[in-house]
Nucleic acid binder design. Structure first.
Lengths: 227, 227
DNA sequence: CGTCCTATTGGACTAAGGTCCAATATACAG
DNA sequence: CTGTATATTGGACCTTAGTCCAATAGGACG
């Protein structure tokens, strides 16, 4: 009830930059001594660390992370390998920046990992400086990804608050069509479009076409086979 | 003379998709036998090839390529190495998709190349299939890059046809500001802004704010510290 | 059946954008 | 100095967009 007409205020107050993001690092390696050593190093750099002995363990435990996070991942592990995990996370749409570390890697493996978007691919013994630098980059990227995703999530929420008709109208408005043209296309009259249009602006929380176009550009709604 | 007011028609006719892009491959390797063999392979796949014995030779000869092109590059060469050339091309803003091939590469080298945007990093002896696949990808990417660049070049041209004042007005218009607000900000009256605005729309070749916003988004002009 | 939401439309205005014609002032190049 | 490009403004008018108030119709839900 009232769920639509209230969405403007709702969305606006939801602009929470209230994340005290604890920037945590997930470390997955089957070698306990490596886990200990690297966890220590990473902590010393001021990051919080969670260690996992296998990809499976990571997947089971760490289903949903909150703040910006990255993954330091051993390539060669019994069972699910690092590369496997990378692919799996991608198909899960759960994309976390990954730094690979390996003792017995080869070029094709590193290339595959990098193609798949790894931040870095380091060889053991890893130099402290290299690892920390890669982690910094990863966390920075994670933060960027997160804020970007938060933004489009918020836009998406607003779009979902639109009625089907309003969505149609919006899609045509951001094309640059005039109200009368839209009305003709939708088989109705200009007056009706004006009403829908005003509601769209309100629900989307904008007060100019320029802003509306920017919002819709950030999601999917482009001028397609319109007109 | 008349260079401004005619720019609309000019720009529109300049939308030339008239490139019969010959998709050529540049092959740089210091080993003549490798050049021969790979050139043969690449030609057999239907691409035109130009070979170079060194990075220097490539840079000197191939300053400006026209159609979509890619580079197959040996990493280890006397003088300028493949990685050097990659970096140099980047600083020259002359970005071509690169496929590295190497006989004695290592992981850090491959990682560095991939980080810098290489399409692939293959080890000699290169499998025909792998190389051709990488080349296909590179050419596809080159084509995408090219059309994207052509698009923003065209937009840039239009922007350059604007007078300084018109540019100012446009920047504020795409912010969503009203004419009267813009007028106040620029210390003039609404009427004047209307004129500038109309000229902007004409010169930019659009007939709606929505389109104008899209164009300006594709280059730099965002709502910055305005308002 | 009554209520809420959605989609629709009308009327009456106000405001904003766009167009045409015309004119002035200034800076810069030939 | 003279002409051109640029920036500016006025007036008259028309088209669009936006707003307020009001009302109807169909569907979903309890």
């Amino acid at each position: 009830m009232m769920k639509h007409m209230n969405s403007v205020a709702m969305v606006k107050s939801a602009s929470s930059p209230s994340l005290a993001a604890p920037s945590s690092v997930f470390l997955v390696d089957d070698d306990a001594s490596v886990r200990r050593a690297l966890a220590r190093l990473i902590k010393s750099a001021g990051h919080s660390v969670q260690t996992f002995a296998s990809a499976r363990e990571f997947l089971d435990t760490q289903a949903g992370g909150d703040g910006a996070a990255c993954l330091v991942l051993d390539v060669r592990m019994p069972g699910v390998t690092g590369i496997d995990l990378q692919r799996e996370l991608q198909t899960l749409n759960r994309d976390v920046p990954i730094v690979f570390i390996t003792g017995h890697g080869d070029i094709p493996m590193s290339v595959k990992a990098m193609k798949a978007g790894a931040v870095d691919f380091l060889q053991k013994p890893v130099k402290d400086k290299d690892l920390l630098k890669a982690i910094e980059q990863s966390l920075a990227q994670a933060a960027r990804d997160q804020s970007r995703r938060a933004e489009i999530d918020q836009i998406q929420k607003r779009v979902e608050s639109l009625t089907p008709r309003e969505l149609e109208v919006m899609a045509l408005v951001v094309t640059g069509m005039l109200n009368k043209q839209i009305a003709f296309k939708l088989g109705t009259v200009e007056k009706t479009i004006k009403v829908h249009r005003a509601r769209v602006m309100a629900k989307m929380g904008v007060d100019s076409i320029a802003e509306l176009v920017r919002l819709t550009e950030k999601i999917n709604i482009h001028p397609a086979q319109n007109q």
